[in-house]
Design a protein around this nucleic acid. Structure first.
Lengths: 173, 173
DNA sequence: CCCTAAAGCTAATGGTATTAGCTTTAGGGC
DNA sequence: GCCCTAAAGCTAATACCATTAGCTTTAGGG
């Protein structure tokens, strides 16, 4: 996909028109503008990552589920560097499809937490930590923020081990 | 500062020229272009956040240091929403000032980890987790990614509690 | 008092987004 | 088979932003 080839911020109407072999203004017959394009991509990418996370969680629980879902999340970000940032766009409240996709993604994490006995407000907090941790990692990684000569895969594994430990001691709200 | 008022991505040469009451091309007498402007902002902001983190760590250790530094980090991001993203730009390898600032910021986290008995490669991993966790949180927060009606400050505190727990069980590489 | 270097300006070029209005084209109904 | 319409495409024009080139002003040192 074009977004993955050129990067999220360079996904421009001009680039898309060039790719499609069409004049730029012609695109306005299909999309309202550049922001609407990013919005459409967000819905697509959010649904995709929700699928990926759900599939990774299937048939697993506890630490195994946590590791699998975290790895699947990071793999999606690596495989789709242009789509991934679109998954972080706040869901459009007027788009049921977008809201549903976002909820499915969160649901995959919620399911893991049930395996740790974490529920209710505590699960909201724990889900936020999951997202912050994994999103922060892949974002810093993509930005070249890890300069030291230490294996990044190893750091990720250790981070998820740390997250597992945190969840085991999470307790109620 | 203009960056904080208009946002990092809208810090444009045109906006800066307007603010300074000067024609746009005149800025090229002071800065090489828009990328150089962002680079200069990155150096400034990185040095600032390094100061903030160092100050928060001073005179504290262990969990108290962790909490203080994490809170200071998040407060900086809130206070300077336009400067904060600039702190995440990978340091320019040719700019000693930038490299030194980035190293000071990392150093503040490293110092905390010594209090947990975490050193060497394990400390590199743990530092990466700190950055991922806190950066991810403030980024999602700024993007409006936390939609549920659960207090965000509370989630942050619980996350840092979780990080504390992870570090206490961190062990060697 | 003059001369130079810094700082500013206008003009011109090229890229992206957007709107307006015209043209082509493919398909359905008669 | 023919016509009519709606979708999809196009060109032209406008508006920003970034960048380069080349000219002008200005302030300070010799």
């Amino acid at each position: 996909m074009l977004a993955d080839e050129v990067g999220h911020d360079r996904l421009t109407l001009a680039a898309l028109a060039g790719r499609l072999g069409v004049a730029l203004p012609s695109l306005y017959k299909h999309v309202r503008g550049v922001d609407a394009l990013h919005q459409k991509l967000a819905v697509l990418a959010t649904a995709e990552i929700a699928d990926v996370l759900t599939a990774a969680a299937a048939g697993r629980s506890g630490g195994a589920a946590l590791r699998a879902v975290a790895a699947a999340y990071r793999a999606y970000a690596h495989r789709h560097p242009g789509r991934y940032p679109a998954t972080q766009r706040a869901p459009d409240p007027t788009d049921p499809e977008h809201l549903a996709a976002a909820e499915r993604a969160v649901g995959a994490v919620f399911a893991i937490l049930r395996g740790y006995g974490v529920e209710g407000d505590a699960a909201v907090d724990a889900t936020r930590m999951f997202r912050a941790t994994v999103h922060g990692f892949v974002t810093l990684e993509a930005a070249g923020g890890f300069g030291l000569p230490r294996d990044v895969d190893r750091s990720f594994d250790r981070m998820i081990d740390g997250l597992d430990l945190a969840y085991r001691g999470w307790g109620p709200g």
